[in-house]
Design a protein around this nucleic acid. Structure first.
Lengths: 150, 150
DNA sequence: CGAAGATAGTTTAATATTGAACCATCTTAA
DNA sequence: TTAAGATGGTTCAATATTAAACTATCTTCG
């Protein structure tokens, strides 16, 4: 039937784009992770340090929103960063429910050195695309990512 | 310096596109996962079942290549699917190193029912883009994903 | 004030994920 | 043929990840 056929075509296109989106993200991520692993950091740990580096101290809840992870996960990631002395927890003075996560001096040093190198590696990964294509990819991804649940 | 400035501009564009790519993939994935969780499947479990459904029986190594996961991980994912009776392992007869993973009847039934629903959910996620935009996104992602390490 | 409800974090149980060490099996080459 | 090396899986240790149950703290309202 005409309708079914059109619908199926749209679905195939959507599925195909979805698969390529997922594989691109996974492939790039898999190629970048070893780069970070050399510095002894996981992707989430790097993400947390980078957020603190560029945004300043954050409470765990905000940190979780930034790197799109659950509260329970943030507890563990911050635990592991704290064990290594890269961040420190400070219990809120006004509202004692909050825990602010701060970069320590060694943490700031590490991410300050690592970020530029990592950004370079990302650039290497993405440089198969022209400037215009990067912008196009970015804007399409943004629209897909921002889609809200109905 | 002119050169530094141009280089920095390219790097900013690459970083920006990278971040949007990652967030789009994570956001869509996070919105789809609960859908699968209702059927008691994780994303990897679904991926494995779907690969077996569309490609037929595979050995664990090939399954890992298909869903981009490590060997150790495949062992666990197949373990969990096997516990639930959705797949079965068959030791290779010719070459006893291989383990072929087959869908069981319940496994085939489950993925056969679930796949169309999941595909519909993916379509819903992606339908913020037009057909032409889906094709464009797919082709850009494909090029980024396929980039080989130098 | 004091109980009810909201909010931030932690803990727990289950699965995921990787790399490395390891075992079994097969292939190759001396 | 047999020792060396390659290949497929498994196991292990560490970290990630989530949802759900739980603790501590704060806010609100009667």
């Amino acid at each position: 039937m005409g309708t079914r056929h059109k619908g199926a075509g749209k679905e195939v296109r959507a599925l195909d784009a979805y698969i390529k989106l997922m594989r691109a993200a996974e492939s790039v991520s898999a190629r970048l992770a070893p780069h970070l692993a050399k510095a002894g950091l996981t992707v989430s740990q790097f993400g947390a340090l980078e957020a603190l580096y560029h945004l300043g101290p954050l409470c765990q809840r905000d940190l979780g929103k930034k790197i799109l992870k659950s509260g329970g996960n943030i507890t563990m990631v911050v635990d592991n960063l704290e064990k290594r002395g890269l961040v420190e927890r400070v219990r809120g003075e006004g509202d004692r429910r909050y825990v602010t996560v701060n970069l320590t001096k060694p943490g700031r040093k590490l991410i300050g050195e690592l970020f530029p190198r990592h950004a370079g590696a990302i650039r290497e990964e993405m440089c198969v695309l022209s400037d215009a294509e990067l912008e196009k990819l970015g804007s399409l991804c943004k629209r897909v990512g921002l889609k809200e649940k109905s």
